[in-house]
């Protein structure tokens, strides 16, 4: 059995344990993915308190509705990352939250990355970072504004002073290149 199949099986077991109301499964998943979910939320919201709320929301959603995660469709990291990002973007897009974010942005200092995150995840994260760095500048800027800035493609177009169609195109080309680079490293959407 290869690593991908083992990972998918493990995720299926964890999903079933959550269904059965196994609290230890929840804490195991939190210990494994908590820093990923929290770090992403902190980066997108720019607000530690909001990131804590998002982190709790993400894991409580998984706890309440484990059936939303389908191991046959994708990996748990993708599922949790999608949830964390969506909740964070929702936060950012609320006007009041935007104001608070602006005020707090300056006071947010980066912490040392969590060394307990799976070693392979760190290696893969570095590969992703490298893949992003190799993108043409215009694609990289568009993706970073959209993903980490929580902006819609229309807002990306406005910030960059480009047509909306061009913004969509840059996001599409850039994200496909990153996905292609991940596949080339055998990372794909799993791990």
């Amino acid at each position: 059995m290869d690593d991908i199949a083992i990972q998918a099986d493990w995720e299926t077991v964890m999903r079933d344990r959550l269904r059965a109301g196994d609290e230890q499964a929840l804490t195991d998943l939190y210990d494994q993915f908590g820093s990923f979910v929290y770090g992403l939320a902190a980066r997108v919201t720019g607000d530690r308190t909001a990131a804590e709320d998002v982190t709790q929301d993400v894991f409580v959603t998984l706890w309440e509705r484990p059936e939303l995660f389908d191991p046959e469709r994708g990996r748990l990291r993708t599922f949790l990352g999608t949830l964390s990002h969506r909740r964070s973007v929702d936060y950012v897009r609320r006007e009041e939250a935007r104001r608070r974010r602006t005020n707090r942005e300056l006071s947010l200092t980066r912490s040392v990355p969590d060394v307990d995150e799976m070693a392979m995840a760190l290696v893969n994260a570095e590969r992703v970072r490298a893949a992003v760095e190799t993108l043409p500048r215009d694609q990289r800027d568009a993706i970073q504004l959209a993903y980490f800035g929580g902006k819609t493609y229309r807002e990306v177009a406005d910030v960059l002073g480009i047509p909306e169609g061009t913004a969509k195109s840059r996001l599409r080309l850039g994200l496909r290149r990153i996905a292609g680079a991940l596949e080339a490293h055998g990372i794909e959407q799993w791990s």
């Binding site: 609290e23 929840l26 804490t27 939190y30 908590g34 820093s35 990923f36 929290y38 770090g39 992403l40 902190a42 980066r43 997108v44 530690r48 990131a51 804590e52 982190t55 709790q56 894991f59 409580v60 706890w63 469709r73 994708g74 990996r75 990291r77 993708t78 949790l80 990352g81 999608t82 964390s84 990002h85 980066r110 912490s111 990355p113 969590d114 307990d116 995150e117 995840a121 760190l122 893969n124 994260a125 570095e126 992703v128 970072r129 992003v132 993706i143 993903y147 980490f148 994200l175 496909r176 990153i178 996905a179 991940l182 990372i187 794909e188 959407q189 799993w190």
Partner: peptide, 30 residues
């Protein structure tokens, strides 16, 4: 899913250890 997977990995390099009290609060909410 493939593109979402790529997007999720974008966030992986941002991992930060959450404050220690988040774990307990999460269990209470769960």
């Amino acid at each position: 899913e493939q593109l979402r997977g790529a997007a999720a990995w974008l966030g992986a390099s941002e991992a930060l250890t959450p404050p220690s009290d988040v774990r307990g609060a999460l269990l209470d909410r769960a």
